[in-house]
Amino acid sequence: MADHLLEVQDLHTVFPTKDGVVKAVDGVSFHLDPGETLGIVGESGSGKSVTVLSVMRLLQRPGRIASGRILYKGRDLAKASDPEMQEIRGEEIAMIFQDPMTSMNPVFKTGWQVGEPLRLHKNFDAKKALKEAVGFLHKVGIPEADKRADQYPHEFSGGMRQRAMIAMGLSTGPNVLIADEPTTALDVTIQAQILDLLRKVNHDFGTATILITHNLGVVAGMCERVMVMYAGKVAEQGPTEDVFANPKHPYTWSLLRSIPRLDAQEHEPLRAIEGLPPDLINPPTGCPFHPRCPFRIDRCIREMPPLEPVGPTQLATCWVTQAGRDLNEAAS
C-alpha cells in the first residue's frame, strides 16, 4: 500500500513532564489518499491535534516523536531534517489553526502574510506574490480583496481571518490541507460558511484534507472517512457512513448516542458518557476506555486490543466487536 499520499504508522508522541511522561499519541496509524477528506474526532486531550502537529513536526517543546513512521509520498517525515521539513511545510502540507484571531501576525498586512508562502517556496517577488495573494483572497470569498489585502489582520472579522488563513494555506497549491478545529472559535453561521469553503477547496483544488473537530455533525457533512481517537489511541476508523450507522467501538457508539436529538421527549436527560477521560501519564491497563465502557469484558482490563478490521470497511480497537458482537444489538 505504498500509494497512499500520507501514511502514519504506529506513531508515538510523548511529552516528558515533571509528573511523568504524557503519552499524547500512543500508537496511531492512519492514511490519507489524494483528494479525500478525513475527519479526526475525539474529545479534548485525545491526541487529535498532537497527531497532526507531529505530522507537521510542529510540536511545542518538550513534545517529541518517540517512534513510528510518517510516510509522505514514501518519505519518512519523522526522520526528515529541519530544512527538508521547511520545504514540506506550507508547500506540500499546509495547516490552518483553531483560532483565527491569534493565528495571524498582528504587525504585518494580510496580503503580505497570505503571499508569504509564495515568496518562500515559489520564489515570487513581493509584487507578484501580493497579486497572487489578492487572487486567492478573492477565491476564498473575501469581497474587495485588493483593498482587504492592504489591511492588517485586526481589521478583519473572525470569519474573514479564517478565510484569509485558508487562502494562505492554499496559495502554494499544497497536496494536503490540515485544518485543526477551523470553526471552533467562530459563530455558528460563520462556521457553516467556512465548512462550505473547505468543501469547495477540496472539490475545486483536489486538496486532500484532514479535518480535526469534536463536532460529529461536521464530520457527517464533510468527511468521506473518519478516525475516532480516544486517549491518544485510535478507537475506530472507516467510511463516515458506516461508522455512524454501525459503530464498531463502544466509545464511538457512546459519542453518537450522546448527541442531543431535536425529536427527543421533553425532559429526557442528556446521555453523557459516564466517568472522566483517562490520565495520560498513568493510563488504565488494557483498553483505556474500559473504565467507562458499558460492554466491558474481563479481557479489556488486561490487554489492549490491536487495530483490526471489524466488518467489511471498518477498523476498530475493541475485543467485543472483534469477537463479532454488534453494539446496537448488545445495548438493546
Partner: peptide
Amino acid sequence: SQDYVRTARAKGMSERRVTYLHALRN
C-alpha cells in the same frame, strides 16, 4: 509561544526568519 509564530513555522520558513522577522518585531 503565540499562535502566529506557529503559523509562521507552518508556512515552512527557517527558524531564523521566524525569530527575527515574525517574532522580534512583536
